[in-house]
Design a protein around this nucleic acid. Structure first.
Lengths: 330, 330
DNA sequence: TGTCTGCTAGAAAACGATTACTGCCAACGC
DNA sequence: GCGTTGGCAGTAATCGTTTTCTAGCAGACA
């Protein structure tokens, strides 16, 4: 009995006699044989894995992107590789190289990034390098690349979500809204701020510069910025936190100052992390379809690989989720 | 210039003349060459990946295990494969088979499991099947296997944590403690209940059967059980929730009933999820070293592979984190 | 009976690397 | 001047599959 017969029996794509099949199956059983993917990949084609490159898996929102990627990948018979960069660009370089070696079907890069030339240059390199290795670069929630580069972009509507959130506050009568945005020129921060300013413009309300407080997207930064604003006597009746984690910090600072939410100050967040509904008061926030982002990333990349029609650039919508942290108009 | 020279230049484990090396590097640069892992794996040895098999990545605690696994794997030059089972044992079977094909260095199974013969039989099969393929089975937070089976076990002290939590409540004067445990014979649930009962015994307090309410480890189950207990007029001054998610539901039910925490009812949870400190009141709970569990799983499996001394069974300790959800003794 | 056809099995060439082995050439010792 | 040694490069075997091509054998048909 030759190796060819075994291969054909297991693949089932070629006639094999009943007797031979039985003997092969018996041997497979008794030896606990499993094919060697590496050998299989060398000759016949094997579906490449999906690589997810993420800053940190434990972030509540990023974990959902990971879940979406894993789910869609599994549904299409792919394995998911998960790698954390901890924000180190050098590590990102290494991982892209590594994924080229691994023949990943798609390399999904997730998370906001600074909008500058260095970023675009790096992404352009990634895109062409991966393309030449047969992998597809997918950017999720990151600034898009100039058309023509071999990359798939999955964005979500930061501006629209922020517009809805700020409009909600303005409609409730708030005029002085503390804006706890992002530090530096992170794309998500810039877009959310644009939506915020657009809402002011749409409502014909002038924008007070001193209420715009950039900082890190962390709980502690939200706490510090809110506490310091209160100490400095800055007047505001609402807080628009750049993320739910920032909102968490803001809520802590307000509570510490003896202020009631939403009685004295209203708060909105951004992300709709799972525990947002469990805070006291339940947080009004902008829902970002994180799981969908992950699923879309994989779907678009693989549909393209399978020569199915598929976009190379989608923008998923965001939606304001109204809970109890904003005081309704009296 | 032969392929051998290229291989030797890149591996750097054999003398190559300066000229040849330069020409190889130039070609590598211009062609954007990367080695093919599959070919490399077929001949020279390649470090196998670490596979993480988990019920659901989005659980706040499981995400931390994943982060620990990824971190330790990356530090040791391994890739991490993440797969979700969504609680389907058939999917788990498939994944173990798949990981044998992938030549994973370790297959890490995470999450509580029912203590019965079927479980032990399945795990025993996994252990030997993986062992014969050169992979190591690692069970994290799951019931250990009989000694002699080729598996590594990483547990944490459920009983001790529960003992501390219940002792804390008893020491604060609580006698009627609602225990929101697990449904069925899940190992974590059984062990936490044992710790709870041991604390009563240690304090010489009789245990009231009607306060023992088994159910799912979910937010909604915590809510329903607490609400129904209140409606039924069950008397209690404290709640020991089996997990922080359950505590979340209990807090919601108590708040809805107009009860103050910790003024009227004290609450403790289990897990110490990241947002536990941000609840109102901040939740007193048992810290489980999730990230450490993940790191230890990888470390033990790989140290064994590398023939370094290493245990095959560790139990990490848990610790009560005292915050504001328990009323101190008056 | 000879040939054609259809079914199944084996032989061998890929796939892309690593590495033991062989061999060339220059330098060196005697 | 000749044998030896050592440094470096090429040849070829190997890893475990898939797949193409070849071949054997039986039955059908003329």
């Amino acid at each position: 009995m030759s190796v060819a017969t075994v291969s054909r029996t297991l693949a089932g794509n070629y006639p094999v006699s009943e007797g031979a099949r039985a003997r092969v199956m018996a041997a497979v059983e008794s030896l606990h044989y499993v094919v060697n993917v590496h050998a299989k990949a060398l000759s016949g084609r094997v579906a490449g894995p999906i690589a997810l490159v993420i800053r940190d898996i434990t972030g509540p929102s990023l974990a959902h992107v990971a879940a979406g990627v894993e789910q869609e990948a599994a549904a299409r018979g792919r394995l998911s590789l998960v790698c954390a960069t901890h924000g180190d660009p050098a590590r990102e370089d290494d991982l892209v190289q590594l994924m080229r070696e691994q023949h990943a079907a798609a390399v999904v890069l997730v998370g906001g990034a600074e909008l500058n030339d260095a970023y675009h240059e790096r992404m352009a390199q990634y895109a062409t390098a991966l393309d030449s290795a047969g992998s597809r670069l997918v950017l999720v929630g990151r600034p898009p690349l100039p058309a023509g580069l071999p990359a798939t972009i999955v964005e979500y509507d930061n501006r629209g979500g922020a517009f809805q959130a700020s409009s909600h506050l303005l409609a409730a009568g708030h005029r002085r809204i503390l804006f706890l945005g992002a530090e530096r020129e992170i794309n998500t921060g810039v877009q959310r701020r644009t939506g915020h300013l657009d809402a002011f413009r749409a409502h014909g309300v002038p924008y007070a510069e001193e209420l715009d407080l950039p900082g890190a997207y962390t709980r502690s930064s939200g706490y510090v910025r809110t506490r310091d604003a209160l100490r400095a006597g800055v007047e505001f009746t609402a807080v628009f936190a750049g993320t739910d984690m920032v909102a968490l910090g803001a809520l802590a600072a307000l509570r510490e100052a003896g202020l009631d939410v939403p009685g004295d100050v209203s708060v909105v967040g951004f992300d709709d992390v799972p525990f947002a509904a469990d805070l006291t008061p339940a947080l009004t926030t902008v829902r970002v379809p994180y799981e969908d982002l992950g699923r879309s990333a994989v779907r678009l990349a693989l549909e393209r690989e399978e020569r199915v029609a598929g976009d190379d650039h989608v923008v998923l919508s965001t939606q304001l989720v109204i809970r109890q942290s904003v005081r309704p108009r009296p």
